[in-house]
């Protein structure tokens, strides 16, 4: 009797999460509907580049592009570094050093994004403006490169991508390290017994066996990169233009919501367009979660581990 009641009572909190997701989907969709029904709106806003609330033009392609570029830069930096560090931690590092390094990585994951943003704004942005840009633009080796052209005030996709990469690193390292460490040591022994060196074993056997976990780590950090708000907001310059070089500013999806939702509150279409951006973000994050899960399942299957 008591058990039956208990089971019933607990059913409510168990489904709180699912109910919340449905609520979020419903409300963002409900708020986004006006722009999708409006004559100047519709689903094509995701490919329209012009965002001008004064003229009631709400194309959000620019923000999608900005998010895409920053995310791409961040992943390109964070993934190789993160996997390299994870391989070091799990395969080569003496246990005592490993404990402290893992602790630093956990602490990096705990630093709030506003703190990362503040640091990037105060240190990295001026550094890009005063040191990095002049250096690469005057060095004949790099000056010709199209992605280093143009003048910059430091607020740029480079700053955004870099701070994002730094924020993603702890996740990539921790999840990859866990994946590498869960590879059975019998694989390592078999490889060493065949005459492989430790790095050959690490790269060819351990990393390849851990690919599903590492892949999931990458997809999850993709989701985090697209959804990251404060740090990117503070350093990418928030300018309505297409970034052609690494030193150009950009406007990302999360920033436009943060910057304008407060003003847009009383303008139905404007507000609705911002919720449309939020809806796109939500869809992206849900698909990344699904892809990450699917990736793990696929990897286990092709490796015959299930």
């Amino acid at each position: 009797m008591q058990d039956a009641v208990g089971k019933f009572v607990l059913l409510v909190p168990a489904f709180a999460g699912s109910a919340l997701i449905i609520l979020i989907l419903t409300f963002l969709w409900y708020e986004a509907t006006p722009i999708f029904l409006a004559p100047q709106g519709g689903p094509s806003i995701v490919i329209q580049p012009i965002w001008d609330p004064n003229r009631d033009l709400y194309g959000i392609a620019l923000f999608i592009l900005g998010s895409f570029i920053c995310t791409f830069l961040a992943i390109a930096m964070a993934v190789p570094l993160g996997i390299g560090a994870a391989v070091f931690l799990s395969e080569f590092c003496p246990p005592r050093i490993r404990t402290s390094l893992r602790m630093i990585v956990e602490m990096m994951a705990a630093i709030p994004s506003i703190v990362y943003g503040l640091w990037a704004y105060i240190v990295m942005v001026p550094w890009i403006k005063n040191s990095f840009a002049p250096a690469v633009q005057s060095n004949p080796l790099t000056a010709w490169m199209p992605w280093f052209q143009g003048s910059t005030n430091g607020l740029s996709v480079l700053a955004g991508g870099t701070i994002l990469a730094i924020m993603l690193l702890p996740t990539v390292v921790a999840v990859s390290d866990d994946a590498l460490r869960s590879v059975p040591s019998s694989y390592r022994e078999a490889s060493l017994a065949l005459g492989a060196t430790k790095t050959e074993t690490a790269v060819k056997i351990v990393v390849s066996a851990a690919i599903p976990g590492i892949g999931a780590a990458i997809v999850l950090s993709l989701g985090r990169a697209v959804g990251e708000t404060m740090a990117v907001l503070m350093v990418t310059g928030n300018s309505l233009q297409i970034p052609f070089t690494l030193l150009d500013p950009a406007y990302v999806m999360t920033s436009i919501i943060t910057n304008q939702l407060g003003y847009a509150f009383v303008f139905p279409l404007w507000r609705s367009a911002l919720f449309a951006v939020a809806f796109v973000l939500l869809m992206m994050s849900v698909s990344f979660t699904v892809i990450a899960k699917w990736f793990v399942k696929w990897g286990m299957k092709t490796r015959g581990l299930v």
Binding site: Y187, E189, S191, A193, L194, G195, S208
Partner: peptide, 20 residues
């Protein structure tokens, strides 16, 4: 040691084929 291990093969208690 690597050449040595090439010359001395080893089979373990539990089958441990690589996941490939």
């Amino acid at each position: 040691v690597y050449e040595l291990r090439r010359k001395i093969g080893m089979v373990f208690q539990r089958p441990n084929p690589f996941p490939m």
